[in-house]
């Protein structure tokens, strides 16, 4: 395969991975809430986009704001009514709670949509820019652009707005944040809701790009956590950086003579282990966020 094509494939896949990990970066990296239902939220986003495409004939990219709003509401409710109750309990409780939630959501989706493989076929699927022998598919290009816009928007929100700063402060020191007058229950709910909305956006992009069924969530969940560690906790741009590294490994490894497909996961996680050994804070991580 031509070098240019590899580069394009890598950048597009990497930024998509970044989008999948962005919500985890916020909820776990900054707020310290482990959300094992993240993969389920991604799947929920994919099916929401699929439903709107088949029933209302809205393109998944156009319906992203609606998908995000839907997941935002679900995320808010989950945090406010469930996770807030165990926020001071040992983190294994949250672990179990969100694990159960993951199963519940996936099973519900399966009940409603069955476990058939679904896909969204837009009219522009397959078309794209051709530069020399390099093909840049429109749908992937748009997904990458959305991923970068979402990362930049999240970063701006966290660093430049009052509520964004309240989220960072609550993540750094919960009691000190309360002394500032920050209502941490609402702040947790807002953080979790934004994380779910970002998962929904990633799901909509996946629906556009790949065939999917309800059990696809697990693979993304695992990758999302690995990507966040790789990129570094507490930084939205770190999620994108981690996504790019993960995407690089998955794009390049199958091309190595004698390796072929099948080892990409193993090597991607080996990279994760290496990063943890040699740079425990991740690529762009800020240790004091923890």
């Amino acid at each position: 395969m031509a070098f240019g094509q590899i580069l394009v494939n890598w950048l597009l896949l990497g930024s998509l991975y970044g989008a999948v990990a962005l919500g985890v970066s916020l909820v776990w990296g900054i707020m310290n809430i482990v959300n094992l239902a993240h993969g389920a939220f991604v799947i929920l986003g994919a099916y929401a986009a699929f439903w709107m495409y088949t029933q209302l004939h809205i393109d998944p990219y156009i319906s992203i704001p609606l998908t995000m709003a839907f997941l935002f509401i679900i995320g808010w409710i989950v945090q406010y009514t469930l996770i807030n109750r165990v926020i001071r309990a040992p983190f294994l409780v949250t672990f179990l709670l969100t694990f159960g939630l993951d199963l519940l959501i996936i099973d519900l989706v399966q009940q409603i949509f069955t476990s058939d493989l679904r896909s969204v076929n837009t009219i522009y699927a397959g078309s794209g820019l051709d530069i020399g022998s390099t093909h840049i598919a429109f749908d992937r290009l748009i997904a990458a652009a959305i991923a970068i816009v979402l990362t930049a928007a999240l970063n701006y929100f966290l660093t430049h707005t009052r509520e964004g700063n309240a989220i960072l402060a609550t993540g750094m020191d919960r009691d000190a944040a309360r002394l500032m007058g920050i209502n941490i229950r609402n702040t947790y709910a807002l953080t979790f809701a934004i994380g779910a909305a970002l998962a929904g956006a990633a799901g909509a992009m996946l629906a556009e790009l790949y065939p999917f069924n309800p059990s696809n969530g697990d693979a993304f969940k695992l990758r999302a956590f690995a990507i966040v560690i790789l990129g570094g906790l507490g930084s939205p741009w770190g999620a994108l950086a981690g996504g790019l590294v993960f995407g690089l490994v998955e794009t390049v490894v199958p091309l190595i003579p004698g390796v072929g497909p099948g080892y990409d996961d193993a090597i991607a996680f080996a990279v994760l282990v290496a990063v943890l050994i040699f740079r425990p804070d991740g690529l762009l991580g800020k240790p004091f966020y923890r």
């Binding site: 009691d175 000190a176 004091f288």
Partner: peptide
Amino acid sequence: PQGRRLFGGLTIEENLRLGAY
């Protein structure tokens, strides 16, 4: 609070603005 409990990853100005939250 005792031990300052500043938000270490934020700037002085960001901390002060959070004071006015």
